[in-house]
Design a protein around this nucleic acid. Sequence first.
DNA 1: AGTTAGCACTGTCAAGAGATGAGTGCTAAA
DNA 2: TTTAGCACTCATCTCTTGACAGTGCTAACT
Lengths: 337, 337
Amino acid sequence: MLTNRQNLVLKLIVESFVKTAEPVGSRTLSKLLDFSSATIRNDMADLEELGYIEKTHSSSGRVPSEKGYHYYVEELMQETTDFDIDLTLIDEVFSNQNMPRDDAIEQAMNLLSQLTNYTTIALGPSARNSKVKKIELVPVTNTMSVLLVITNLGHVESKHVNLPDGTDAEELTRIMEIFNEILYDVPIAQVSEKLHYEINQEKIKDLLSYNRRIIEAFLEAFTRFAQSKFYLTGQSNMLYQPEFSDLERVRELMNFFEKNDILKLIDHSDSTGLTVRIGRENQVTAMQNCSVVMVPYALNEEEKGTIAVVGPTRMEYQKVIPLLKYLAAHMSKLYKK
Amino acid sequence: MLTNRQNLVLKLIVESFVKTAEPVGSRTLSKLLDFSSATIRNDMADLEELGYIEKTHSSSGRVPSEKGYHYYVEELMQETTDFDIDLTLIDEVFSNQNMPRDDAIEQAMNLLSQLTNYTTIALGPSARNSKVKKIELVPVTNTMSVLLVITNLGHVESKHVNLPDGTDAEELTRIMEIFNEILYDVPIAQVSEKLHYEINQEKIKDLLSYNRRIIEAFLEAFTRFAQSKFYLTGQSNMLYQPEFSDLERVRELMNFFEKNDILKLIDHSDSTGLTVRIGRENQVTAMQNCSVVMVPYALNEEEKGTIAVVGPTRMEYQKVIPLLKYLAAHMSKLYKK
DNA sequence: AGTTAGCACTGTCAAGAGATGAGTGCTAAA
DNA sequence: TTTAGCACTCATCTCTTGACAGTGCTAACT
């Protein structure tokens, strides 16, 4: 159990280090805290023994450890409510009637990365839970048609289908009717299963078996629906953080961002809460000097995703966390149009 | 006019510098060129006076100037034909039947950036020249429909349209018929013009004027067609180039890549030829230590674009140029399916 | 018992001094 | 025209040094 003063010392160490990126010495704190530097040093020694802070070398000031950051986020930090930030900026993005949804998300993320000076990621919203509303096959040339799938939320996916020249148009129409019948209102996530099941049902087996190409096109269009799209912005913000003054680190980081392995970093969990993952808690090696703060959001019952901020472990949690919460809470406005 | 030996010296300077990124001294060349270092020094002095090479400081070896690189690319370089590279890798990407075109381009660009170790950009193909094949309005909810536009090449764009509850379905059908009639076979680039013209024609004026929302949705769907999409890959390759060992440069570069200002760098010209832009020839300030090599390509008569490689001015032109040409020449295979 | 002053000690960092070496230009001779 | 030779110039590396920002520990104070 920490004493009041120890808590305070830890809090100030974290906040000072977050601000300056310099190890914090006892004299600095003694100026803030009516105690002599020697007293502070004693507390620091205790905090170090307990694993909340560390030294960078034997005679350096102290730096928060991962455990220290966690304790700070969970126990010590008070979330700023009076932002020095203009929240109306965010509201404006969401209230623009005319913007397509994807663009709005992208813009909101841009804004978030500007406000925080960190990298931001938005995952989804995944269309897995939306349902098939209509399927069409539009002939384009003699041999090529476009398969369209439209969901109950108005998403569209398309896929080219090459059909042997002279395929019977009437028959295609019938096939489409059957597909529409079978798949209407089926959630995207279940289409594949449903489709495989139906193919083996007697009544349409004959009709379809000769033309596997359509089925394949279908399945591909649907997998594309299910793919989680993500929006990554503000990568270069990281380059201004002193922890990335080392080129080797920069390379590692940029390689990671470029590899599109983002999904390994963010859980697509349905949990409702905020997750803070600090340093080596991140599985991804390139991210082991970084912290990730993530919050799930829901545009509506069916479309859910996650937004996250990636920064150095020395992140302004105090500012990022409430900001992220605010943003996630207001994402649903995108659909209230 | 340069003597044979001077040409040779310049060629070797460029090639050695490209390889090692170290200024080239006279002794290095005298080993390659059965002449004494003093002789080489005399030639170097001449080349320097003519502006083909430079010193980094008074007693350093020589480095090619921008003029020197140009002369090299245009006069001295012989394009490698026997690659140490497996061109079949590229062919494989293009021959994969099942891959959607966008994915194929992306993958080809990925490959190119791996083969060259530079950053690659693909612009387009722009759909501006393709023609409207079919327009549809699919109702999704009471108040929202999806507008679909399909081109003669099978591209699809969609746009949500909010309609007042209770809009007459019959009438919508009629409107769509009219649109299809008006716009059938009109090139995307001309749709906006055509639409504005037709709106003022007597026969449909009444029908449409009350519902500007549909028109607007149309226009937006079409502008999205016309937007040139681009593919940017291998940004982080640049971080391994010694010219980017300076963090400030890295920041500038990454900011540029992130800003999506790529269009300022690449001309979307219809010219047939290869363009090499070296150093300060690039208008973009962040790119003034870089060279850009670009080549136009055509998937077919209607879909054209540009592919480019961005690297330091000290670029392996000898390898990049023929590789880029090869790739551009084979892009059309994407459509021969 | 908790707090503080004082002091010896430790590691980092920046500045300066040499030493080294790769390169040059120039001159005179082959 | 080419080459050998020499003096000279920078950049770069290493080493030393002093300043400085910290620490831990001990003994004294409240």
